[in-house]
């Protein structure tokens, strides 16, 4: 590893995130339009954690979010003229909260949209077309909580579905019967944390399964006998923070792995060393580093995946534990 990657290159990553909106002559920019709202949430959250929350224009961002409103459905799409979707809607709400502009949302209509997507089994669909999984359940629970409308949710029904997704290894899958996967462990654990129902989790077993995600090179994988990937730094660590077991992985080695996946010329973090960076892995790499107490970063709330200060101010903080912030 070269010396230039032994530190988080904050100014370079800030520049990288700023440059993303300027790559309109890049085909990839347009091929990922269906993720634009999520990408802005990832970029903005990473900037907040790196203490550069003003690096992108607030007005432009809010205008963009509002322009993605799908008035027929009463929720947000990922891009202007794209259909409303639960995932884009959660990202929109998170962005507007970080920008202190939630007054731009018709909360009643969004709540109606979200609640309409709950299925008889308790799981949520992503939109009217009916694709269901625990990711959408988490989006719904998170968004309702951020909007202060969690009391309108049928909690027993929701928890009932999560219980069906729990496996003998302590983890959770995307749907009932599915194999445990670290990203689904995060969405289910965080949803249960928001619903104050962590008693549904076999914490000892899940803590073991999560700790076993760390590979000899320090990186984390998402399932047994799979490769490491920077994004699991967040999926696994957030779940461990919620279970207060984040000390069960080797933090220094994981920090080393995340830093080694940085692109040192133009910024950004990739899934693993030597690969092309993107805003998704940049965000989840920075998020992981924050939970590991990396110096100079702001605290990240692992339940909502937003700046901890904002979640605390809203009175939504759940009981979790990250590693103490180190000094330089």
């Amino acid at each position: 590893m070269s010396s230039s990657t032994s530190k988080l290159l904050i100014p370079l990553h800030v520049q990288y995130i700023q440059s993303l909106g300027e790559s309109k002559d890049d085909l990839l920019y347009h091929l990922t339009a269906h993720l634009r709202m999520n990408a802005i949430y990832w970029g903005l959250t990473a900037l907040n954690i790196m203490q550069h929350k003003d690096a992108l224009s607030r007005t432009e961002m809010i205008d963009f979010v509002v322009s993605c409103w799908d008035d027929e459905a009463g929720a947000f799409g990922a891009h202007p003229d794209h259909d409303a979707h639960l995932h884009a809607t959660l990202s929109a709400i998170q962005i507007l909260i970080m920008q202190d502009a939630l007054d731009r949302v018709d909360v009643d209509r969004v709540v109606k949209f979200i609640l309409s997507l709950q299925q008889p089994s308790g799981v949520f669909a992503g939109d009217q077309w009916g694709e269901v999984d625990t990711r959408f359940l988490y989006c719904a629970v998170n968004a309702l909580s951020l909007l202060g409308r969690l009391h309108e949710l049928d909690v027993e029904k929701t928890v009932g579905y999560l219980r069906q997704c729990r496996n003998f290894d302590g983890g959770f899958g995307a749907v009932a019967g599915a194999e445990s996967h670290a990203a689904m462990v995060f969405v289910c654990t965080a949803a249960l944390a928001i619903l104050d129902r962590l008693d549904e989790i076999d914490q000892e077993t899940l803590g073991w399964w999560l700790a076993e995600r760390q590979l000899p090179n320090g990186g984390l994988n998402g399932r047994p006998e799979k490769l490491e990937d920077v994004c699991y730094s967040f999926w696994v660590l957030s779940s461990m923070s919620i279970l207060k077991k984040i000390r069960w992985v080797d933090a220094d080695k994981l920090i080393g792995f995340i830093l080694s996946a940085q692109e040192t010329e133009h910024g950004g973090i990739a899934d693993r060393p030597g690969d092309q960076p993107d805003v998704f892995h940049t965000h989840f790499g920075v998020a992981g580093l924050s939970l590991l107490g990396y110096p100079g970063l702001a605290d990240l709330d692992p339940v909502y995946c937003m700046p901890a200060k904002i979640i605390e101010r809203m009175g939504l903080r759940r009981d979790w534990e990250a590693l103490p912030r180190k000094t330089e």
Binding site: L31, A33, H34, L35, G77, A78, D81, H82, D83, H85, D127, W129
Partner: peptide, 14 residues
């Protein structure tokens, strides 16, 4: 065929 992740176009197709 150019972008299989374009969910809005899948919806439109249906």
């Amino acid at each position: 065929h150019a972008n299989a992740e374009f969910y809005t176009v899948w919806n439109y197709r249906r």
